[in-house]
Design a protein around this nucleic acid. Structure first.
Lengths: 248, 248
DNA sequence: CGCAGAATTGATACATCTCAAGCTGGGTGG
DNA sequence: CCACCCAGCTTGAGATGTATCAATTCTGCG
């Protein structure tokens, strides 16, 4: 919760918490030091807008700490989240002048930024960066397609269960906790942000959270602290294949 | 309509219709000839399944001619299309063993295939391929995010109008026709495929097509041949920003 | 304490789904 | 050459899930 001074100032890449997962993951130490020379940190408070869609964007960045969202808004105000950015995720597109989406910090946020020009030049000379970026982009594309199934075909209850499962998984992977039985985590999103993620209204999100609580699938303490007594039970509510076992 | 012998047999890369847009777009002639050595063509009939999700996939490929779809199916049969593959689009993921989605030919289809192993080896030695693949993947990710807005927030009528606009644009770009005024094209998708694309039922697709027809936004001859008398009118039905003009 | 933002809950409206019946056009076999 | 058939499509009537509008109720915080 507390933002340390560390996270507000330049950190040595060697000590970076996302060193092995971010766009720089495959860099050798000499490549890393060249990156180190052009990087700078920026921080944002919860709720702050990092950039508006259509604005000129002269940097790209990695999320170091905190959570941000990508979203699109229609003229009449309908908005759809199209990306959830967690530590190590990459923001911005090399070769693009303006932001294609609104980027918003949902928690306090630290990003490791590179001005676009120098970064693009480094990409040309450092295949490791482009390779890693390709890998990350393919992963994001897979996630986007999973998300499309959710948006197009799942019921409200399945959508909520799926989102909780996604967050639980991510949280467990940070804590190296096993993904079964009892799981405990904090929701990093407001009901409204959940609604924008899921293509629902905030009222429907609230109702379905209450329903899952009533049915014992989850236990809530306060609005944000979630306990999942039985993760498999939660999975069975997502509508996804959850037997997984039995190879043919 | 008629599939020529040409398209069923090996074609010289220099004569390839997707030469300048596919994953090989940036290759120099020596790189191209190495690709040429490992490529082979495969063709499928309309309706045929190219590969099932979960099946072993030992090749990657470019669509040369025709249209294919990527889709996901839930246990109970609900299906969502997650990709529409047009000529020059790339299928498969380097480094992945099994297919993540069902791939289906919706028209007769010709693909230019590479066995995965040799292709991956070439990617290591040929930065141009990885660079182009990154670019294409980023484009697909943008398209997926546009699609997410459609799935999550648009009405049935807006969804249909958006799909028609997408197909009209693609068609016009192939014919170098201007994107305004009267547009004519053929729908390459059945009502059911449209429904799977849009996260609707086929009945709703049919009703909204009828409504757009009744309102004069489109004219139908038969079920597949579409005339759009006024493209701007169609755009205004998509819910997207359509003034576009006025830079601030 | 009391306010403001966040969340819950209720009543009702409405868009889309579901189930069901019929239509259409092109191919086929008698 | 006609009758039939079938997949693809349209249309209708009613059910249902989610949105909308409107009160409350929480919760953290100045």
């Amino acid at each position: 919760m507390a933002v340390t001074d560390q996270s507000l100032t330049q950190t040595d890449c060697a000590d970076c918490p996302i060193r092995h997962r971010a766009v720089c993951a495959r860099c050798e130490s000499d490549e890393l030091s060249r990156l180190e020379a052009i990087k700078y940190y920026r921080t944002y408070e919860a709720g702050q807008t990092v950039i508006w869609s259509g604005d000129r964007m002269d940097f790209v960045a990695s999320v170091v700490e905190g959570i941000a969202t990508l979203s699109q808004t229609m003229e009449d105000g309908r908005t759809q989240m199209v990306g959830l950015l967690l530590p190590s995720d990459f923001v911005g597109r090399p070769g693009r002048e303006t932001a294609a989406y609104d980027v918003t910090a949902t928690t306090s946020l630290t990003m490791c930024c590179f001005r676009k020009k120098p970064f693009e030049e480094m990409m040309m000379r450092t295949p490791h960066i482009g390779q890693r970026l390709l890998e990350m982009t393919l992963d994001e594309l897979d996630a986007a397609r999973e998300w499309m199934l959710l948006l197009g075909r799942k019921t409200a209850r399945e959508k909520i269960a799926s989102l909780l499962a996604i967050i639980a998984r991510r949280d467990a992977s940070l804590k190296f906790a096993p993904m079964q039985g009892r799981i405990v985590f904090d929701l990093p999103l407001t009901r409204e942000a959940m609604a924008d993620y899921l293509g629902l209204t905030l009222e429907t999100v609230s109702r379905q959270m209450s329903a899952l609580k009533r049915d014992g699938v989850i236990v809530l303490e306060g609005k944000r602290h979630v306990t999942v007594p039985d993760f498999d039970r939660l999975l069975s509510e997502t509508g996804d294949d959850n037997d997984g076992g039995m190879p043919a």
